[in-house]
Computed example of a mutant assay.
Amino acid sequence: MDALLSRLFSSEEEELHTLDCMAYAMVLMAACTGVTLLFEDVPYGRYATRRYGFPVDARLAWFIQELPAFMLPLGLVVWTSCARTSMLPNQLLIAMYFCHYVQRSLIYPFLIRGGKPTPFASFALAIVFCTYNGFMQVRYLSHYADYPAGWVTRPSFIAGSVLWLLGWLVNLHSDHILRNLRQPGETGYKIPTGGLFEYVSGANFLGEIVEWVGFALAGGSAHSSAFALFTAVVLGSRAVAHHKWYLAKFEDYPPRRKALIPFLF
């Protein structure tokens, strides 16, 4: 893989510049996506339509689209000369990244119960994003991120790590609640209850947003911050859409429940 990267980039300076540009481009993507989502819901799940392409089985789609976010970074760590993976801050941040994507790509898809098919356009875009972001995050952390001594004892790293862990646990617990809403043989939608669903309609989305905000705070880079921003834009919009949908569908939907931020929004 080192040989391939050396063909793509003439020097480490050029590669680092490219990674920085990728981060800034993701910020621009987040802005454009945010504007688009003011007029259109993310086209998958209950909002899927055939105008975004033929449907792909939910389990298959999740497995294939998330796999590059795990396999490409794994290749970067295992098959390249990683200049920074011996450093503790880099190791911990890479571990945070892999904890999420091992679960998301190798475990989560096979726990899905009766998920709705994913339109091909959404599926293809997810593959592109996972490849793009996986390379940007892990290549930067494994080869270029240079943290000063004592970084892991700084308040920003400690607070970010705690936020990451809380967000990861909330995301896992919320997914568990959603999976178990229906009994075997049941169809249709139900109001989720328990955990943070008592306070917000998008508890699973809130968990993942908090997770990557914590990752960005702990990492302190443009790359992790861009990812956190993009996640917040996409999943925040998704939470708002879900909240409106629940309110329209269920007359007895809890009136005090918010969309994304408990008690506020």
Rank of each mutant, 00 (worst) to 15 (best):
E211D: 04
L106K: 02
L67G: 03
P43H: 09
S156H: 12
A239W: 03
L235Q: 12
L38T: 14
W164F: 15
Q65K: 13
D20S: 14
L264M: 13
F129I: 00
V152A: 10
R238Y: 08
L178E: 10
A248C: 10
W212I: 08
F135C: 06
S6Q: 14
T36M: 14
A124S: 14
S221M: 03
T231K: 02
L28H: 01
H100Q: 11
L165H: 03
G202C: 07
R7M: 11
H173D: 13
W151Q: 07
Y147K: 03
F250G: 05
L163I: 01
T80W: 07
S224D: 05
P255W: 08
E14C: 09
Q91R: 13
P117A: 09
H243V: 12
E66Y: 06
G185P: 12
W79T: 10
A216K: 02
R104L: 04
L172R: 08
A126D: 06
Y47F: 15
Y253W: 09
F230W: 13
R7E: 09
L76Y: 05
A203Y: 02
K116G: 05
V240R: 15
A31S: 11
S122I: 07
T231E: 04
T18E: 07
D57W: 06
D2G: 07
L111P: 01
D175Q: 08
V138R: 00
L141F: 13
P184Y: 07
Y144V: 01
L217G: 00
N133I: 08
V213T: 13
A222I: 00
G214K: 00
E13C: 11
A248N: 14
T33V: 10
A124P: 00
P55Q: 07
R238A: 10
L16E: 14
L5D: 02
L38K: 14
I64P: 00
L181Q: 13
S142V: 03
S174K: 03
F265S: 11
G160R: 04
P89N: 06
Y47D: 13
C32P: 02
M136C: 08
M22H: 00
L28C: 08
H176S: 13
S142A: 15
G214R: 01
P109Y: 09
V35M: 13
L38V: 14
P262N: 10
R179H: 08
T33R: 09
I158C: 09
P73A: 03
A216G: 07
